[in-house]
Design a protein around this nucleic acid. Structure first.
Length: 471
RNA sequence: GGCGACGUAGCCAAGUGGUAAGGCAGGGGCCUGCAAAGCCCUGAUUCGCGGGUUCGAAUCCCGCCGUCGCCUCCA
């Protein structure tokens, strides 16, 4: 089965073929670091994390680049408001962002370039675009001339005439066409600047990604990802710059765009003020809950964030985790027929999961296959299967649920601490079993309740009492 | 105004020509002293609405209604 990926450029799912066999060059647009990350940023991180995990699961070696925009209007403005050095401000938010990345458990990008450290590559591209006649200078600025680019608008499906008509802000008098965009911006007093052939200034927003791609991945790449809100103008402009500069098409084989996170039907964004920061979310919920919310939908669909969603994800996650629980105490072993059914489900799950993921990373369908496996595991456990007998199915659940989806189905620390208190817990449960035998349920329940307060859940199954630590 | 996406049970959601996955919530049952977890059974004759194409459509076409995104910085 081959992977098929939806390409925004062609608006179709296409067979996934990399430039170099077995290797994927993937670029994902990172944040502008002028404030704390909100859940929208987290969605993007998690979506491409899951995509990358699946590619690696399939055996690809992924070179994953995620940039930081660490110099731009908003950073400068914010720094001026706070009386802080723009570089220091950017650095502060990069650190905060990376803390969130660690908390969310995303695989670390191979390279994390920053605009301020790529100035020479950026200038080289600007210069090249000028020389080739795709750009022009005006008052210390350099603009890309969209009329020189034959197929400008192909990604977002826009025509130049429409853009001219639809301009909402007053056109920059330096621009020849309203859709022209800055490659290099002349520095205003008090702004960070670099020396250049066109005078002191700094890079425009779009050129950085083109330059970083060229520098870290090459003239042509396999996957370029980002939020759907970046399709226009950001990615459209990237294509224009990169293809005009290198003369090679396509710049990107597969343009991927994730759906927006919404709140009460509207996009979660800074400007609307309807956002929840990653820190705020993580103070209330574990990161896997956000992962579950995403896994339950397709990455290209918008997702509404609300409390019911969170609760549903939480319950679903608990169901996955419960399947990882051990066999009942003194399990006698399941009947041959039961084990055969479990074995058949293992096979069906592996195949179904991969087929779903191969279809443009259909995580919702893949997750459904995981739940089928969950049911089979629980059935087998109820039928008396031993740990040994459950192991192959649970191993698969862990391989796919943890390895590909990035969930934590069996936290390491829980197991470690469990080992330490095991004997103590056995003693307590022994006493409690005596109490129950003597029908002293008030005392037995008190032990159960008190242990629950301490974070240990006791459950009396038909086969004996089991306990586990609760998060 | 232009470009694009979406509308499937109470909720989330997959499914893009062959007769509606999965999860959450709910109801009934099993198990249990109770609880929890788990298991079994249970829900859309129907996929925003109206036409059309087809032997057959949630899936294709046309129209309408509604929601959202982009066109300005945004993951």
């Amino acid at each position: 089965m081959t992977l098929r990926v939806y390409n925004t450029l062609t608006r179709r799912k296409e067979p996934f073929q990399t430039i170099e066999p077995g290797k994927v060059r993937m670029y994902v647009c990172g944040p502008t670091v002028y404030d704390n990350a909100h859940l929208g940023h987290a969605v993007s991180l998690l979506v491409y994390d899951i995509i990358r995990r699946y590619l690696e699961h399939k055996g690809y070696e992924v070179r994953h680049v995620m940039n930081y925009t660490d110099v731009d209007d908003k950073i400068i403005q914010r720094a001026q408001e706070l009386g802080e050095d723009p570089n220091a401000l950017a650095e502060r938010y990069i650190q905060a962002f990376e803390k969130n990345m660690r908390e969310l458990g995303v695989l670390w990008p191979t390279v994390q370039p920053r605009v301020t450290r790529e100035i020479d590559w950026i200038q080289r591209m600007v210069q090249g675009l000028l020389e080739k006649g795709y750009a022009y200078e005006a008052a210390g600025n350099v603009y890309f001339d969209v009329t020189k680019d034959e197929d400008y608008g192909k990604l977002s499906g826009r025509k130049l005439e429409d853009l001219r008509a639809g301009v909402r802000i007053e056109p920059d008098p330096n621009k020849r066409h309203p859709a022209d965009f800055a490659l290099w911006k002349a520095a205003k007093p008090g702004e960070p600047w670099w020396e250049s052939p066109w005078g002191p200034g700094r890079p425009g927003w779009h050129i950085e990604c083109s330059a970083m791609n060229l520098h870290h991945l090459g003239e042509q790449i396999d996957i370029h990802g980002g939020g759907q809100d970046l399709i226009f103008p950001h990615h459209e402009n990237e294509i224009a710059q990169s293809e005009s500069y290198t003369g090679k098409e396509p710049f990107v084989r597969y343009w991927m765009h994730n759906g927006m996170l919404r709140v009460r039907g509207e996009k979660m964004s800074k400007s609307l003020g309807n956002y929840i920061t990653v820190d705020e979310f993580l103070a209330q919920h574990e990161p896997d809950i956000l992962r579950m919310i995403l896994l339950n939908a397709h990455y290209r669909s918008p997702i509404d964030y609300d409390e019911p969603q969170v609760q549903q994800a939480k319950q679903a996650l608990a169901r996955l985790r419960n399947a990882m629980r051990p066999a009942y105490p003194n399990a006698p072993g399941a009947a041959q027929e039961v084990l055969e059914r479990l074995q058949a489900q293992i096979q069906a799950t592996r195949e179904g999961f991969e087929a779903a993921m191969d279809d443009d990373f259909n995580t919702a369908a893949a997750l459904a296959h995981l739940f089928d496996l969950v049911r089979a595991i629980n059935q087998a456990r109820d039928a008396g299967a031993t740990d040994e007998e459950l192991k192959p199915a649970q191993d698969l659940l862990r391989e796919l649920g943890e390895g590909v989806f990035g969930l934590h189905l069996q936290p390491q620390d829980e197991q470690a601490s469990a080992a330490d208190i095991g004997p103590l817990m056995d003693l307590l449960l022994e006493v409690r079993a005596e109490l129950r035998k003597k029908k002293q349920f008030d005392l037995a329940d008190r032990i159960r309740d008190r242990l629950a307060e301490l974070g240990f859940r006791i459950e009396d199954t038909p086969h004996g009492t089991v306990w586990r630590r609760e998060a």
